[in-house]
């Protein structure tokens, strides 16, 4: 989100000159049809419209692809290093800590027996969200996970994995039967069934909103703090703005880690709940 300072100034001056709207903040948070590059400036991205859908390659799509490329490159390198020797070296050491963290601290305790089947999905989700979050923190970067369409899709995929995992273990009928608590009075069953079905959808909904809100809020706060300089029209506020923006930036590093952890953790927890229904 630390996009070109000149753009910020230009937008801010425009805003100050007349309209007084807050579009310049959202401009840096929202998806766009152009890519901002260092030294080159704005580069327009192709717009594709197919079957009545806007299938344009937007800025967030590009950053998701960058994240995917980084992950594929890194993990293939790590795989090769494991083939050479079981003793980790260099980047393998760092990545191994994260893999073991996801496996031993998130997936194993929440799913328990049979967690191996879900490990590839949860590891991918963790590293993908983590990389996307951090790509938003580098200059000229953009946070794909700060877009609700992206987080909603990730949450939907989590939803599918949760339901399919539960149904494969307990059978389709057994899974829906297991949603209801034991020893329920029969007249409560229809009500509780509706409540539980709604609960299935609220879980991924919360996942999507949490990730989106956390990744967007930090950027908006940083831009607002910097915008304070131009709104108050005094240089006195610059140290305060910079200090607070830096603080929020550091906080965002923490948030980037925590949100990747929480998304994976909660997905894993829900999978565990659907997979082992006996409690």
């Amino acid at each position: 989100m630390w996009t070109t300072d000149t753009t910020v100034v230009k937008d801010t001056l425009q805003a100050a000159a007349g309209k007084q709207d807050t579009g310049w903040i959202l401009h840096h948070v929202l998806d766009a049809h152009e890519l901002e590059l260092p030294f080159i400036g704005s580069v327009s991205l192709p717009q594709i419209h197919l079957f009545g859908l806007d299938l344009s390659i937007t800025k967030h799509v590009i950053f998701m692809w960058i994240a995917a490329a980084i992950l594929i490159f890194t993990f293939i390198k790590v795989t090769k290093s494991y083939k050479k020797s079981l003793v980790p070296h260099g980047i393998t050491n760092f990545v191994e800590v994260l893999i073991l963290f996801v496996r031993d601290e998130i997936v194993k305790p929440t799913i328990g027996h049979g967690h191996e089947k879900f490990l590839p999905y949860l590891l991918t989700v963790f590293f993908f969200i983590l990389t996307c979050n951090f790509l938003g923190l580098i200059p000229y970067g953009s946070t794909a996970t700060g877009n609700i369409a992206v987080t909603a899709t990730l949450a939907t995929i989590s939803f599918c994995v949760i339901q399919i995992g539960g149904m494969m273990k307990n059978g389709v009928f057994g899974y829906f039967k297991g949603l209801l608590p034991h020893g329920l009075p029969f007249w409560l069953i229809p009500i509780m069934f509706v409540v539980e079905i709604l609960g299935l959808f609220t879980k991924p909904f919360a996942l999507a909103i949490r990730l989106f809100a956390n990744m967007t809020a930090g950027h908006i706060v940083i831009l607002a703090l910097l915008g304070l300089i131009f709104i108050l029209k005094t240089a006195m506020v610059i140290p305060v703005s910079i200090a607070f923006a830096l603080f929020i930036y550091l906080l965002e590093i923490l948030v980037a880690l925590i949100q990747a952890y929480i998304f994976t953790m909660l997905s894993s927890l829900f999978i565990g709940m659907a997979y082992h229904q006996e409690h």
Partner: peptide, 9 residues
């Protein structure tokens, strides 16, 4: 929500 982005994601 950009529908295209959902598909791309």
């Amino acid at each position: 929500v950009n529908y295209g982005l959902i598909l791309w994601t």
